[in-house]
Simulated assay, not measured.
Amino acid sequence: MELEKKIRDKIAILVVLAFLLYIGFSYWNNIIKIFIEGYTLLFPFILGGCIAFILNIPVTFISKKLLNCNDKGMGKIVKKYSTGISIVVSFFVIIGIFALIFSIIIPNIIETAAMLPKTFDNSTKAFQKWIDSNTKLSSNIVNLVNNMGIDWDNIFNKVKSIVFNGLGSMLLSTVEAATTFASATVEFILGVIFSIYILAQKKILGIQFKKVLYAFMKKEKVDSILRVLKLTNLTFSNFITGQCIVSAILGMMFFIIMIILKLPYALMISVLIGFLSIIPVLGSAIGCALGILLIVMVNPVKAGVFILVFLVIKQIEDNLVYPKIVGDSVGLPSIWVLVAITLGGKTLGVAGMIIFIPLFSVAYVLLRKEVYIRLKEKGLEIE
């Protein structure tokens, strides 16, 4: 009877899977549309959950420190409101870090933008001087242009038409961008408020979640699910911490080398690269491009030196620092960190690079545990 029941259960599962596959293949576009609409509707809450997950790292750390206070006087009050205090402190710390980063980056960008007209003017004068010093070359160019029979009036009218049409399109784009920005701001504010509620009531929410699981599922399965969720939470938290450490190390390496080589904007570019390198691979490349743009305005030769510095430091980071620190923080060997970055980037782009490393780590730990259990059951011990 027990065997027949297991067979019936497996047949029922196969029938349900076959039905779901049929629905999926038949109504794929509609299903994708429903998922997109659902994601758009729930985006503020998803964003709030992501913010809460990231902020939970400093909140938990600060809360543990506050709970070590004395049980008398002010210490008793601090312990009682430790969660609220840790949430407020965490928000102020994050805001302070962003304010410090932007206070270093933005003034230098404004200064460089102010230098652009002067740099362009100097380059134009230098080019004009070179043309004037080569009178034969300039006269040949003028004759060549005149002999080409170009209708300059027609070209001017087309350019004017493109400019006016472009101004109209730019105006519409500005209105659309302002509307999108306002909508994104409202969603972000809702996400932050939702994250505060999650952080303030995380213990209650955790207990309620466990009650629901135990009420509708077998205890063994719930225990297994909770172990996987705990491992996933620990892995993602360690990954975020490791990523921040790598970013700080990378920024310091750039700052020290740029100071030694007397490259301009050392502090600003180091902070920029360190900040953007939170995004694996792509972030530091964006920081490098912005750094080159800033340095080339001052000294093109030093911009070439900076490129060489970037290539050398990136090799050290990619092959030594990143796999070692991030790999250790998530319990994933260096080779699989590189595989996770590659596959994640190919699959989901920047988000995939960030998500795939901790996901690979969870899968690696679970698979390793299962492998050892099966080897032990078979009485095998492989060196």
Score class of each variant (00 low, 15 high):
residue 345 G to M: 11
residue 195 S to E: 03
residue 237 S to M: 03
residue 54 I to Y: 04
residue 212 V to D: 09
residue 50 C to I: 15
residue 293 L to W: 08
residue 276 L to M: 12
residue 354 I to W: 09
residue 6 K to Q: 01
residue 166 G to K: 09
residue 38 G to C: 02
residue 48 G to Q: 05
residue 258 M to C: 14
residue 29 N to S: 15
residue 104 I to H: 01
residue 215 A to H: 09
residue 232 T to Y: 07
residue 57 I to H: 02
residue 97 I to W: 01
residue 344 G to Q: 04
residue 48 G to A: 02
residue 210 K to H: 02
residue 295 I to H: 03
residue 300 P to R: 01
residue 286 I to K: 00
residue 346 K to G: 15
residue 264 P to G: 08
residue 41 L to C: 06
residue 263 L to Y: 03
residue 167 L to A: 12
residue 89 V to E: 04
residue 170 M to W: 12
residue 376 K to D: 14
residue 278 I to S: 01
residue 377 E to H: 10
residue 73 G to H: 10
residue 123 S to A: 13
residue 60 T to S: 13
residue 115 M to D: 08
residue 379 G to K: 06
residue 334 S to I: 05
residue 352 G to R: 07
residue 167 L to D: 08
residue 379 G to C: 08
residue 209 F to S: 10
residue 180 T to F: 15
residue 133 S to A: 14
residue 220 E to T: 09
residue 315 Q to A: 07
residue 189 I to W: 04
residue 137 L to E: 14
residue 204 I to W: 10
residue 318 D to L: 07
residue 286 I to W: 06
residue 341 I to W: 10
residue 43 F to R: 14
residue 157 N to V: 10
residue 192 V to H: 03
residue 129 K to W: 00
residue 168 G to F: 11
residue 38 G to Q: 01
residue 357 I to P: 01
residue 26 S to N: 06
residue 197 Y to R: 09
residue 353 M to I: 08
residue 132 D to G: 09
residue 361 S to H: 02
residue 352 G to N: 03
residue 324 K to M: 13
residue 253 M to E: 06
residue 361 S to F: 02
residue 94 I to D: 00
residue 236 F to P: 00
residue 120 F to N: 13
residue 253 M to V: 03
residue 289 A to G: 03
residue 154 N to S: 14
residue 9 D to A: 15
residue 319 N to Q: 11
residue 383 E to N: 04
residue 91 F to I: 09
residue 18 A to R: 04
residue 278 I to R: 00
residue 161 S to R: 02
residue 364 Y to N: 06
residue 53 F to Q: 08
residue 372 Y to H: 15
residue 159 V to I: 14
residue 133 S to D: 15
residue 187 E to R: 11
residue 113 A to W: 06
residue 311 L to C: 11
residue 111 E to N: 07
residue 128 Q to C: 02
residue 349 G to S: 05
residue 307 I to E: 08
residue 101 I to C: 05
residue 259 I to G: 00
residue 263 L to F: 05
residue 55 L to A: 08
residue 257 I to A: 14
residue 24 G to E: 11
residue 328 D to W: 00
residue 175 V to S: 06
residue 61 F to P: 01
residue 48 G to S: 04
residue 339 V to R: 03
residue 20 L to M: 13
residue 321 V to T: 12
residue 314 K to G: 11
residue 74 M to I: 15
residue 97 I to R: 00
residue 187 E to M: 13
residue 63 S to W: 08
residue 378 K to Q: 07
residue 99 A to K: 07
residue 154 N to V: 00
residue 29 N to C: 04
residue 167 L to E: 14
residue 304 G to R: 06
residue 278 I to F: 14
residue 284 S to D: 11
residue 45 F to M: 10
residue 176 E to V: 14
residue 308 L to N: 05
residue 165 N to I: 02
residue 175 V to P: 03
residue 146 N to H: 05
residue 162 I to S: 12
residue 108 N to K: 13
residue 31 I to V: 11
residue 275 F to S: 04
residue 67 L to Q: 14
residue 174 T to C: 08
residue 168 G to L: 12
residue 238 N to A: 11
residue 298 V to M: 02
residue 45 F to N: 01
residue 46 I to P: 04
residue 379 G to D: 11
residue 82 S to N: 12
residue 354 I to Q: 06
residue 320 L to M: 14
residue 223 D to W: 02
residue 354 I to T: 11
residue 307 I to H: 00
residue 246 V to P: 00
residue 311 L to K: 04
residue 154 N to G: 15
residue 8 R to K: 15
residue 136 K to R: 09
residue 89 V to S: 03
residue 39 Y to T: 14
residue 374 R to V: 09
